[in-house]
Computed example of a mutant assay.
Amino acid sequence: MLGFRDPVADAIGLLKPRTVVGPNLRAVGEWALRFDTFLHVRIGGLVRGTCWLILEGHEPVLLQEGDTFMLGNPPPYVLAGTLDASPRPAEPVLAEADDGFVRIGQESGDDLYLCVGHVAFDDSNAALLTDLLPPLVIVRAADPRGMELGQLIALLATEVGVAAAGGPLVQNHLAQVLLVHMLRAHAGQTDRPTGWLGALNEDGIGTALRAVHADVAHSWSLKELAEISHMSRSAFAQSFKNQVGVPPLEYLIQWRMNLARDALDRDTLSISELARATGYQSESAFSTAFRRVVGSSPAKYRNQARKPELASPAQQ
């Protein structure tokens, strides 16, 4: 049986996040580092000092102590001490990290102290999040969530380069907690559709999303979801589409198919069992919905997922 709970926990579970924290940066004077485009999400924050974040296609942003930022599938960008500094490639500089730190310039009490982490996701499900994010999200230290995010960044920074028992585990969990808090902040800042991130807000739409995820096999109707949300059907349908980006029952189908793909990838259930677990009365009804959303039959999708495991070393 499939286990479903909170929408955010479910989605992040499907994303299978892998985190790499650091190396952290300490810099003083004139400096600038150019980062190539990369996939998925990078999160960072200033423990001390200020620096410029220059994202291709955007106006330069001055980051200050206590600010945090999140980059979603960003284009190339530059971090710099001053706007007129000439950027150099970041990769060879970061490769010289010592004990989790890279230093540019002489040590100073006034130097920048930047903590960063990269969060990568399972490629087949990464779009569940990256399609919902703008290239740049900034939470200022003075924002309502700024203090807790600043504390998380500071705590994460202290774990980098410390040879303490369980250090990598602590870094991994802190980075994922930081990700969730940044998503909460983003969901509260934006007026664009936020998909399952709508469950982060304690309102009628969030209540409906949590109900759907708590029992994805239930035969949900628009009337039932509207009642749970204490709204009329028309008001609920309009509000849900505005906030989530798709109509309620379309969201339910898409989410069921996301879960079905993950189960087929892991080959944990037969197709008939998976049909019942995702709310379909027959295997044929499930297969029709799966083919419409995913573009292939469940059996074909499962066979494709099995191929890398079945291939011999000479074939790979």
Rank of each mutant, 00 (worst) to 15 (best):
L169Q: 14
V170P: 02
N172F: 12
H173C: 13
L174V: 06
A175S: 08
A175I: 07
A175P: 05
Q176P: 02
V177H: 14
L178C: 07
L178I: 04
L178K: 03
L179M: 07
V180C: 05
H181L: 01
M182N: 06
L183E: 00
H186D: 05
H186S: 05
A187S: 05
Q189W: 09
Q189G: 10
D191H: 11
D191V: 15
R192D: 10
T194Y: 01
T194I: 12
W196H: 08
L197Q: 09
L197M: 10
G198M: 01
A199T: 02
L200K: 04
N201K: 13
E202N: 14
E202M: 10
D203V: 05
D203G: 12
G204T: 01
I205R: 02
I205D: 03
T207Y: 12
L209I: 03
R210S: 12
A214G: 13
A214H: 15
V216L: 14
H218Y: 13
H218C: 12
S219P: 10
S221L: 09
L222F: 04
L225Y: 04
A226T: 08
E227Q: 09
I228L: 15
S229E: 02
S229R: 01
M231K: 06
M231F: 10
S232N: 11
R233W: 03
S234P: 03
F236I: 10
F236T: 04
F236L: 08
A237H: 06
Q238G: 11
Q238P: 08
S239V: 07
S239Y: 09
S239E: 10
S239K: 09
F240T: 01
K241N: 10
K241M: 11
K241C: 09
K241A: 14
N242L: 13
V244T: 04
V244S: 04
G245V: 01
G245I: 02
